[in-house]
Each structure stands twice: as C-alpha cells, then as structure tokens.
Amino acid sequence: MAKLAAFDMDGTLLMPDHRLGNETIATLKRLRERDITLTFATGRHVLEMRPLIDQLALDAFLITGNGTRVHSLHGDVMHRSDLSPDVADEVLHARWETHASMHVFNDNGWFTGKAIPEMLQAHMYSGFHYQLRDLRQIPAHEVTKICFCGDHDDLARLSIQLQEALGDRAHLCFSAVDCLEVLPVGCNKGAALTVLSAHLGLTMQECMAFGDAMNDREMLSLVGRGLVMGNAMGQLKAALPHLPVIGHCQNQAVSHYLTHWLDKPNLPYSPE
C-alpha cells in the first residue's frame, strides 16, 4: 500500500467551481487515519493553501508554485527554487508577441500589471488576490516564477518565442490550457516530491499521485502509482498512455477511486 498520496488541486482534487467536495474531504481524513501522508502539489501559492489546510484541520505537506517550494506540516520551507535573475529580467523586460497577461510570483504573493477580475473566480472561496504593480519594477532576484495567461493558441506561439530566447535556462510548462509557466531549471512537482519523499525516508515507488495537466507529468511518471483524471489535458494523456485514467473532477473522482482502493483493494477499479 502507498505510504504517501500527492494531489494536484485544480482539475483534480477541486471541482470545476474550485471547491473541495464533502466526499473528498472525508476521504482525505480516512487516508490520514490510515497513516498515509498527504501532500498537496499545486501551482497555487502557499499564502492561499495554508489557510485551506488549517481550515480542514488536515496534516499535509505542501508543494506550491508548481514545485518552487516544499513546506513542512508546520509551514516551514524545506526546499526552494527561484528563477535565475537573468531569466527573470529577460522575461519581464522583453517585448513578446502575445496578447496574454503576465503574472509574477514570489514569497510575498501574486503580482500583475492590470486588473483582471475574471481571474479571481478560481480564488473566490479562498479570497486570495493579485496585487497590482508595474512588473518591470520588481527586482529580478525576487522572482520565483512567471506565468502567462490567455488563449491557448496564442500561448503555444509564445512558448516557441520563450524557448528560442531562454533555451535551457528555464523550464516551460502548461499548468492549464490557458496558463503557460516559466519555471526554474529542473523545477517541477516530480522533482519537489522526490525531495520530500527522501526527507520522509520514502521511495517514490511508495507514493501515489493524481493530476490533470502537463505540470503533473513528471510527478505522475515518477511515483509507484500515477492516476490521470478523465478531464485531463489531451497532451498529458498522450504523454502518459500507460497510466490508468479515472473519472472527472466534477464527480469527485479522486474520492471515488480512493474509496475503492481503501475498501476493495483486490478488485479491479472501474471509473464512475
């Protein structure tokens, strides 16, 4: 049986309205009762995630910012990774041919250049909010990651521009169909989970993980049991065709799968 379970949030553990369902919460508590370590691995900020964990009264490790930070049960930073200043400076100041909005993250929060109220929908239950700022004035050594949000085709063209400009100095990743991230080299959820599991004295084979987007690819491929959501990006399913696909996040499929795994481990699983 797995000793650690890692969960992506948006499109995986959260329903489409960005809430945790009651069945999901109950199942997470059952895992803790079985002494299975919980880890939430998300692109969201720790300033948003920590209050959620405290509200649910769940002991859980946090991998935030798509692997840029790993936090202990008590909120201490166990591992950190930031964009190199030269990359941050170039991304912030170059003129990119895109209509996408740019967003900067560091330990102090989420920053963007103009108000985009519709982006706050995904954070309506937590109240987490961007801070308006001239992004070009943010010191390059204070940038953890940079995100571009917009139309997928536009972002796909932008990713080519970024790849040509940055080469192997950064890691580019689609954390959602409408979100392209510029991350530190070697930074991803899988690398962060490897650090955490080693700290806990576990192997990656003793871990299980759930995800739906390309920022989950490394994590899902490295654990002993990787599960892909039915609503996952087509690119992720194509990249990991050998992994089982479970149901949709709107049906709390993670809870459905884990309940079967806990109660009927010897029987084949069939998505709801």
Rank of each mutant, 00 (worst) to 15 (best):
M208Q: 06
L166S: 05
L20D: 02
V70S: 11
H256D: 07
E142I: 11
D216Q: 04
A198Q: 07
L20R: 07
N22F: 14
G186T: 10
R34P: 00
T42C: 11
E181H: 14
Q121K: 12
A115F: 08
N251S: 15
V228M: 05
E97N: 06
E48L: 02
Q55K: 14
N215F: 00
K237P: 06
L47F: 05
N108L: 12
A232P: 00
H74T: 14
N231S: 05
S159T: 12
L196E: 00
E181I: 15
H171P: 06
I63H: 07
D153S: 15
I138Q: 00
R32E: 12
D178A: 13
E164F: 09
N66A: 12
D151K: 14
A238H: 15
K264Q: 15
L262S: 12
G234Y: 03
C179F: 11
T42S: 14
T42E: 06
L258P: 03
D216E: 06
E181K: 11
A26R: 13
C173H: 00
E97V: 09
G75T: 01
V177Q: 12
L236C: 05
A6M: 07
G247I: 00
Q55I: 12
G75N: 01
V228E: 00
A41I: 04
V143I: 13
P184V: 03
L262N: 11
K3I: 01
Q250E: 13
I160S: 13
N251Y: 14
L202H: 01
F111A: 02
G113L: 06
N108W: 15
Q161K: 03
T194F: 06
E118P: 13
A88G: 10
F40P: 03
F111D: 01
M208K: 04
Q137M: 15
G211E: 05
G224C: 05
P241F: 02
A94M: 13
L92P: 02
H74D: 12
S72E: 14
A88T: 09
S126V: 09
D151A: 11
N188P: 10
L31M: 08
I116M: 10
G226T: 00
L180C: 04
S101G: 14
T27G: 04
H123M: 08
A94T: 09
E206S: 03
R133D: 11
D17E: 07
L31K: 11
A57M: 14
F148P: 02
I25W: 02
I53T: 04
H71F: 07
L172S: 03
I36C: 09
S175Y: 04
D59K: 08
G11N: 05
L31W: 11
I36V: 15
R80M: 09
N66K: 07
V177S: 13
Q55F: 13
W110G: 06
L4I: 05
Q161S: 00
M15Q: 13
V177E: 12
E48H: 03
D151L: 08
F40E: 01
L202S: 01
H129L: 15
L267V: 10
